[in-house]
């Protein structure tokens, strides 16, 4: 019983960290390279704890990110929902992969999420279309994934015993 309540706190606090990293101001050249922190954290937790962290969690996390970034309500909620759905349906296979292979899937998911959110904002008139440099964030997310994975795994093993 105790570990269950622990689990939620660990997930929520780690997500708070992801939000911080997602909105902390960066210099201009680094803006396009900012990894998709919240997406990566949702990816990890849905893969590691699929019975506790599910679609509703991803949706709520995305909604809060929308509020933080000042985008339309539901934009990041939708992209994170897609990410969580794919991860949930593949989580057993993903756990067998090594981190490099996982970052391959993460790369594709981040690419889809970035492209979809940019596209939706353009057709809803929130931004003017720009060059495709914003997709670079998918590369940096995939590159940083193995390190983040081992970090989060040790965090999970320290606090949560399934």
């Amino acid at each position: 019983m105790k570990s269950r309540s622990y689990a939620y706190w660990v997930v929520i606090i780690s997500l708070f960290l992801a939000y911080l990293l997602a909105i902390v101001p960066l210099p201009d050249w680094a803006m396009n390279w900012r990894p998709q922190w919240v997406l990566m954290f949702v990816f990890y937790w849905t893969m590691a704890l699929p019975y506790r962290v599910g679609l509703g969690f991803a949706w709520a996390a995305g909604l809060l990110l929308d509020v933080l970034e000042g985008t339309m309500l539901g934009l990041n909620a939708l992209t994170l929902l897609i990410v969580a759905y794919v991860t949930l349906s593949l989580h057993q296979r993903l756990r067998m992969y090594n981190p490099i292979q996982q970052s391959g899937l993460l790369f594709i998911l981040a690419l889809v999420a970035l492209g979809l959110s940019h596209w939706l904002r353009v057709i809803s008139g929130q931004i003017e279309p720009v060059d495709s440099m914003y997709l670079l964030a998918a590369f940096s997310s995939a590159a940083i994934w193995p390190a983040l994975f081992s970090l989060l795994r040790s965090l999970r093993r320290g606090f949560i015993n399934n």
Binding site: I23, M31, G70, H118, R121, I127, V130
Partner: peptide
């Protein structure tokens, strides 16, 4: 205190 994390806006 902050700026939009998205370069397009």
């Amino acid at each position: 205190v902050n700026r939009s994390p998205d370069r397009a806006s």
